[in-house]
């Protein structure tokens, strides 16, 4: 166990280093980077300052170290707005976390429910209905769904707020009302994907020997489904969920946050991208991908603890 833990953590660190190098390289392909970094109206002083601070006058590997130092010491500054990027990200984190946690719970539970119902009634009308529903779900762009919901339930009928964010501490009820539509819009796509994946895994597992054994020893259908089939079929779902949740919390829900005007990490990335403001895009891309890699490793370790068959 200890060996597995060490090996998995080591590989996680290596992947993170590789990702930091790759992300850095993506942004070094820009010609005359100091001009782009400086925002719209640079002075000669700012240009020289940026050139020195980011190491544009130095070889690539030194520049890499310099940029990483800037990011991880929390000193990276957005040049178009003169704001500290890392502080800004931490300020936006509660919004993104509200979105990710609420939506994550909704799409996991609903996805599992739909997947189980679909597999249980495979080939019948309920299964077909859910299949159509999930195909519509994965075919609808989240920002279009979001805009339609915000318009019809928000602007037009005033049932729910069309966008914006109220912090949980200032008014829990308002927070909840503002989050309902974003949670729903973000969940739809994932529910579609998860229910289909779970349906096919359950239908695979249901023919395994140990399921037949469980039936043969006289367990009820319900016990077989929940204790034996579902427990094993959930493995791919949980690892999918870990990665998707990490992506959302790392700023991946760019479209949802933008369409509902939630000032979260994703919207920050989108707004910075529109202004061609590189430092925030670079930092968010790096942090978001780190979140995916770290949660991925955590899920692997969790499996090794829970499932004695896994010894990598």
């Amino acid at each position: 166990m200890a060996r597995f833990l060490i090996r998995r953590s080591l590989s996680m660190v290596l992947v993170m280093i590789a990702i930091s190098i790759l992300t850095f390289l993506i942004f070094t392909t820009i010609p005359h980077p100091e001009l782009q970094f400086a925002g719209r109206f640079p002075t000669a002083d700012t240009l020289a300052h940026i050139r020195h601070q980011w190491g544009f006058d130095q070889p690539v590997y030194l520049r890499y170290l310099k940029v990483m130092k800037l990011i991880f010491s929390g000193q990276i500054v957005s040049y178009s707005q003169q704001i500290n990027v890392v502080q800004q990200i931490f300020q936006y984190l509660p919004v993104t976390a509200s979105l990710a946690i609420g939506a994550g719970i909704i799409w996991l539970l609903t996805g599992i429910m739909f997947g189980v119902l679909s597999a249980w009634r495979a080939g019948r009308w309920l299964d077909r209905g859910l299949t159509i529903l999930s195909l519509v779900g994965v075919s609808t762009p989240v920002f279009f769904l979001g805009a339609v919901l915000a318009y019809y339930l928000g602007d037009k009928t005033q049932i729910l707020p069309a966008g914006g964010y109220v912090s949980l501490t200032s008014s829990p009820w308002d927070w909840f009302k503002h989050m309902i539509l974003p949670w729903f819009a973000l969940s739809v796509l994932f529910i579609g994907v998860y229910s289909r994946v779970l349906r096919s895994t359950i239908l695979d597992t249901i023919n395994d020997d140990y399921v037949r054994t469980a039936r043969a020893k006289g367990l009820t259908e319900r016990q077989v489904m929940i204790r034996h089939v579902l427990r094993n079929s959930l493995i791919p779902i949980v690892s999918l969920w870990g990665l998707d949740f990490a992506a959302v919390i790392g700023g991946g829900a760019i479209l949802t946050e933008t369409v509902f005007d939630l000032h979260g990490i994703g919207q920050y990335a989108a707004q910075s991208a529109q202004q061609l403001d590189i430092p925030p895009v670079l930092t968010i891309t790096l942090f978001g991908t780190f979140a995916v890699v770290m949660i991925g490793a955590a899920v692997d370790i969790l499996y090794a603890v829970l499932d004695p068959r896994i010894r990598l």
């Binding site: 010609p31 990335a269 061609l276 895009v281 995916v292």
Partner: peptide, 18 residues
């Protein structure tokens, strides 16, 4: 490992410039 839209806008920004 990259979230799809984050990598998309990162590459989009860079390639739009260069």
């Amino acid at each position: 490992a990259y979230p799809v839209y984050l990598l998309g806008i990162a590459l989009g920004v860079v390639l739009a410039i260069s």
